[in-house]
């Protein structure tokens, strides 16, 4: 009885903590790509995403953070637990002050890459998330916001 009464507020506060959880990972080298995607996977699992969805989220973070290393050398990945119309989800923001994306439309459509990569990164990411917003300025940098809601 006492145990149950104790457990309830602890669970509630744990949930509230999950809903406000944020993390910022500095991306300066290839090893940081691994750190970012592992943090993202852990957070996705805590938010209630399945193993499969969490692996997909980790893969998306891997693509976004690799773009930072390849094109801008330095930047960051920010992960935010979020809610929208009662649905929980994860917001992934990749930010850099690199060269910017010259042709966003082509970068999303696929097959376009200036780094010698596969050119599938952004195209694949767009198909896999619920919302994708790309804010880029030539010579100023790029901020990509990807949102994935729990279904």
């Amino acid at each position: 009885m006492t145990r149950g009464a104790e457990a309830l507020p602890r669970m509630a506060s744990g949930l509230a903590k999950n809903l406000n959880e944020t993390a910022t990972i500095a991306i300066d080298a290839v090893a940081d790509i691994v750190t970012a995607r592992q943090r993202g996977r852990e957070m996705a699992l805590r938010l209630g995403f399945s193993e499969t969805e969490s692996t997909l989220i980790a893969t998306i973070i891997s693509e976004l953070s690799r773009n930072v290393v390849l094109y801008a050398q330095h930047g960051e990945i920010r992960l935010e637990a979020s809610t929208k119309s009662g649905k929980r989800g994860l917001v992934i923001i990749s930010h850099d002050e690199g060269p910017g994306i010259p042709d966003v439309q082509r970068a999303i459509v696929g097959g376009y890459s200036t780094s010698g990569g596969l050119g599938l990164g952004l195209c694949g990411v767009q198909r896999m998330v619920d919302e994708l917003h790309i804010d880029t300025k030539i010579g100023r940098g790029t901020t990509i916001t990807a949102k994935k809601w729990l279904s």
């Binding site: 499969t52 969490s54 692996t55 198909r127």
Partner: peptide, 12 residues
């Protein structure tokens, strides 16, 4: 299995 799923979803 989850890696295979992601690969197919991302078109890899």
């Amino acid at each position: 299995p989850e890696v295979a799923f992601s690969m197919v979803q991302l078109g890899l």
